[in-house]
Amino acid sequence: MTTMQTGAGLDGKRVLVTGASRGIGRAVAERLHEEGAVVLAAARSFTGRADGNLLSVSADLTTVEGCDAVVESVRSHLGGIDVIVHALGGSSAPAGGFAALDESQWRKELDLNLFPAIRLDRALLPLMLAQGSGAIVHVTSIQAQSPVFEATLGYAAAKAALANYSKGLSKEVSPKGVRVVRVSPGWTETEAAVALVERLAREAGSDYATARGKLMEAIGGIPIGRPNTPSEVAELIAFIVSPRAPTMTGVELRIDGGSLPVV
C-alpha cells in the first residue's frame, strides 16, 4: 500500500513572489513559506512578517530600476532561483471605455501588468536554464478572455498579452526543464475588492452582502455563488510549483467559480 505524499515538497526551494504586500501575492508568499520554501517577497512596500525564510525587498516593479533591484536581491539573498510567481497586477484606469484611456493610462496598465514579468523572466530565467529546472507562474485574469470594457480595458489587454507571452515562453523553455504555467483568477476577494464593495454599499445606502451580490451580477454571475479567496488561489499555485505537478506546463488554469462561460 502506498501512502500519498501530502507536503508540497518545497523545502529549501528559492522562490520570488511579486506583488506580495497584499492580496493574492501575499497569500502565495505566506503559503509557499509554510511549505518550507525560502521566499523573497517583492512589492513597492512590504508590511508582512519576516523571518529567516521569508525575506522582503521593496521596489517599484513598474520601472526598469525596480526590477533590477529585485534581481540583485534574488542573487544576493537567495543565491539562485527555483520558482517565480508573478502575482503583481491591478488597474488604476478610470471608467468610461476606450475614450477614457489616454497614452498615460495605457502605459500604466502595461507597466504594471506586463513588463515586470518580462523583465524579471529575462534576467532570472538563465539561472533556471543553467540548473535545468524551475517553475514560473504568471497570474493572468479571466478578463484576458472576457474584458470588462467599461472600466478595465487596458488591464484586460495587458493580461491577454501576458498570457500570450507566457504560452510562447513555455514552448521555448519547457524542453530545457523549466515549467511555465498561467493561473487565471476570476473575482477574488482581496483587500482591494473588499474596499470596492464597501464603497459601493455606502454609495447605494445598502449593506456589504447586498453590494457584493449586485457586483457579482454585474460581472455576469459566479455559479458557485461567491468570489475566490486569496488563500484558495495560493493553494492552487502551491500545487502547481510543487513536485506533484511535474508535467504541468504551457497551460492556463482558471479559478473563477465558473464565471467564464466557455468550454
Rank of each mutant, 00 (worst) to 15 (best):
V180D: 03
G79S: 10
V17S: 00
V85A: 09
E72M: 10
T6F: 14
E191Y: 09
I81M: 06
A193Q: 15
G9V: 05
G220L: 04
I84F: 02
R44F: 02
G90R: 07
A37Q: 08
L169K: 11
V263L: 07
S76H: 06
S104K: 13
M4E: 14
A195F: 08
P94I: 03
D51T: 09
E30K: 05
T152Y: 09
E252V: 06
G90N: 08
A95Y: 01
Q143P: 01
P116D: 13
G177P: 12
K13G: 03
A195Y: 12
S174K: 04
E252W: 06
E34L: 15
S73F: 00
A238L: 11
V64A: 15
I136N: 03
V183H: 09
M216G: 11
A42P: 02
K159H: 10
A151I: 04
R122Q: 08
A135V: 15
D51R: 04
S174M: 05
M128I: 05
A20E: 12
R226F: 15
S206F: 05
D102F: 02
E109F: 10
I118V: 11
S206R: 06
I118L: 14
T229G: 11
V183N: 04
M4H: 11
D207R: 00
V181W: 14
S206H: 01
M128A: 02
A123E: 11
P116L: 11
I118M: 12
V233A: 08
A93T: 10
T3Y: 08
